[in-house]
């Protein structure tokens, strides 16, 4: 009797002890880890990357490059991006960053008055240095320190040269861009113009397009009607490439068409793989982010002053279908 009671109770103790230990372990595991408060003074540089559209693959890579470089440099980097194409979000973010007295801003250049005013007046007033990434605005209009990204004129030249060769240096090229071409598009157009000057047999027409699907398709249709012989298309902005090719496909066989585009957007890549597009310029967005951040940090720290105002070009390649 005595032994039975002792044994049963001992078994109970062992049983409960095991589960108690497990439970203690689980409680310790479940302890919430509150973010550690930081010390009073923050000497880490604060840099903000502001872009227009968060969801674009291109800008995601820029962001990635900047953040990675920031970790290496020991600076705090954050990407602020608006949703969609609303300029308002973009400008507001830029303004907030300036009010926040960040140490530097990496920004997607925008060819708008508001942008220019913010960079030129407000940023200068608050003493915030700005470097444009991927897209540029004229230095004199924005007081940007420098530009990091592809040299758009050179990239356009490469495209135009390739197309001219494919066209045997004769025929008509339709250049597609915004109705109000941005500074970047203008640069690209400039590159195309400069190249084609050497080939008098080739003429080119600029076709401006709206923002919506209908507008793009209508403009494409109109152009197809007006220039029925023009089978060479050069798309300055990847965002319209899809709808332009859709419209051409709807109208006729796409094969004889020679279509080249800028920017590696996912839809452009699939068009390239499908053989609808014959080639595209692939840029190095990650490198842009990385280099842009490094230059900004160097400028803030006084290591490289002044920065080359003409910009720091990043490499680009022409990727052609079937290669």
């Amino acid at each position: 009797m005595k032994r039975t009671v002792t044994r049963v109770l001992s078994v109970c103790i062992v049983f409960f002890a095991i589960f108690t230990v497990i439970s203690v372990w689980r409680v310790i595991q479940a302890t919430p880890h509150f973010p550690e408060p930081v010390a009073d003074s923050v000497d880490q540089l604060r840099i903000v990357l502001i872009t227009e559209n968060q969801s674009t693959d291109f800008w995601k890579q820029v962001e990635e490059g900047a953040i990675q470089a920031g970790e290496k440099q020991g600076v705090l980097v954050e990407a602020w991006a608006g949703f969609g194409t609303e300029d308002q979000d973009f400008n507001r973010n830029l303004e907030t960053a300036i009010y926040s007295k960040v140490d530097g801003i990496l920004v997607q250049g925008q060819d708008t008055e508001a942008f220019k005013e913010l960079t030129k007046i407000k940023a200068a007033f608050y003493g915030v240095p700005i470097i444009t990434v991927g897209e540029d605005v004229p230095a004199e209009e924005s007081l940007r320190k420098t530009y990091v990204g592809s040299n758009q004129i050179e990239a356009a030249s490469l495209l135009a040269e390739t197309m001219a060769e494919k066209m045997n240096y004769q025929g008509e090229i339709v250049v597609v861009g915004d109705e109000q071409p941005t500074y970047m598009q203008k640069q690209r157009l400039q590159g195309v113009e400069q190249t084609l000057e050497a080939y008098p047999e080739i003429t080119f027409t600029y076709q401006g397009m709206g923002d919506t699907k209908e507008e793009i398709m209508n403009a494409t249709m109109e152009r197809l009607n007006q220039s029925p012989d023009a089978t060479s298309w050069l798309v300055l902005d990847s965002k319209v490439a899809y709808f332009v090719t859709q419209e051409i496909k709807r109208r006729t066989q796409v094969d004889p068409y020679l279509i080249y585009s800028f920017d590696e957007a996912p839809e452009v890549r699939s068009l390239l793989q499908a053989g609808v597009i014959d080639g595209m310029i692939r840029q190095r967005p990650q490198e842009m982010g990385e280099q842009g951040l490094n230059l900004l940090v160097q400028w803030i720290r006084g290591e490289t002053v002044p920065l080359n105002s003409d910009g720091y070009p990043t490499p680009f390649v022409l990727e052609e279908a079937g290669l």
């Binding site: 002792t6 409960f16 589960f19 108690t20 439970s23 409680v27 479940a30 880890h33």
Partner: peptide, 30 residues
């Protein structure tokens, strides 16, 4: 996330309390 963890921890504590009650009861009985 921290709220979830806090709630989870309090749940775990409750369980621990039950096990501990059992353990101590057994020890005291013995």
């Amino acid at each position: 996330g921290l709220y979830q963890e806090l709630i989870q921890q309090s749940d775990e504590l409750e369980t621990l309390g039950l096990w501990l009650l059992g353990l101590i009861s057994s020890i005291v009985l013995l």
